[in-house]
């Protein structure tokens, strides 16, 4: 299905959220005071006629509190719900996480550029998601699975601070059945961690999984998202140690945003607006921006 990259707005409703109904709420991660783990839920929304491309984001309103940018975690161009995976990080995200099926939230968008999967046809896809950073990638690998034959190996690396914070584990078996190789890591193991063997796992930073992933640099495109330090180190390692082309290492940036349409100025990095020039940037672009201001 053809989707316009840039949503066309009636100028008068640029900042007006449209109400959408929450169909389902799935708890991905339960809050745990002992480990400092915050609750994460996936909201499935009634998307109506809203369509989008993988990697785009929405400005999501918790009515009565305000608006935050949230990546879309489900594939576009298909009927079915639109998923947003949200962590209870602050006032607005906290209200969104606390919402229930049947509640109404507001959305504007979709905004931003996207991951162009056509440019990676015939290549191996390596997805690297650190913590909640897997959420924006989920729509991308899901989209890739819908056209599985277009790509070589699809490898999914997912790491988090502790095993309880890993996302979408309920879907792993399903992914593997569709030919995705999954490797997971946790900075700190718990009692169960060592006793389970599947999927393949390690204790440590997610970058430790690179050695296990049998990366073929000439034919691999990498998609990274996670905390800034992971994007910086992971990207550098893939380019410098594994020899991936810097323009084939793609990442999606996170910034505070108020408008989503290149006006409010909050998301500016050097001379780029993350909301309209991004959020998807290549490692090559970020490294060039980094000469003036660190972009990760």
């Amino acid at each position: 299905m053809a989707v316009a990259t840039h949503p066309v707005h009636d100028a008068s409703d640029l900042y007006v959220p449209r109400p959408v109904r929450i169909l389902r709420v799935r708890e991905e991660v339960a809050a745990d005071v002992a480990t400092g783990t915050k609750r994460v839920v996936t909201l499935d929304l009634d998307r109506g006629d809203l369509d989008y491309l993988p990697g785009q984001f929405l400005q999501v309103t918790a009515f009565g509190a305000g608006e935050v940018p949230i990546s879309i975690s489900s594939p576009g161009g298909l009927p079915g719900a639109l998923s947003l995976t949200i962590r209870d990080n602050g006032v607005i995200s906290g209200m969104l996480v606390a919402s229930k099926a049947g509640d109404t939230i507001g959305v504007r968008g979709p905004f931003g550029n996207h991951f162009d999967l056509d440019a990676h046809r015939g290549r191996d896809l390596l997805f690297v998601g650190g913590g909640i950073g897997l959420a924006p990638l989920r729509g991308v690998y899901w989209q890739a699975l819908l056209r599985r034959g277009d790509f070589g190996r699809i490898v999914l690396l997912h790491g988090s601070r502790c095993p309880g914070e890993l996302l979408y584990s309920w879907q792993w078996t399903d992914y593997e059945r569709q030919g995705v190789e999954i490797l997971v890591s946790a900075d700190r193991a718990d009692d169960c961690w060592a006793h389970e063997e599947h999927p393949k796992r390690c204790v440590g930073l997610i970058t430790k999984l690179f050695d296990e992933a049998r990366i073929a640099p000439g034919r691999t495109s990498a998609f990274l998202c996670g905390p800034p330090i992971m994007i910086e180190n992971g990207g550098r390692e893939l380019v410098q140690r594994f020899g991936l082309a810097p323009e084939r290492v793609l990442t999606t940036c996170e910034r505070h945003m108020k408008c989503g349409v290149g006006k409010c100025g909050h998301c500016v990095v050097v001379d780029r607006y993350v909301c309209i020039d991004g959020p998807v940037f290549s490692y090559e672009e970020l490294a060039a921006l980094g000469a003036i201001e660190p972009a990760w």
Partner: peptide, 28 residues
């Protein structure tokens, strides 16, 4: 933001801001 959780009439307002102010790019 402030969580109100209340019923009533709300408005979305735009205020002038400055990149020099602390918090302009701070994220939760």
């Amino acid at each position: 933001p402030v969580a109100t959780g209340a019923e009533g009439t709300f408005e979305r307002i735009r205020l002038r801001d400055s990149c020099q102010l602390a918090g302009f790019v701070r994220q939760y």
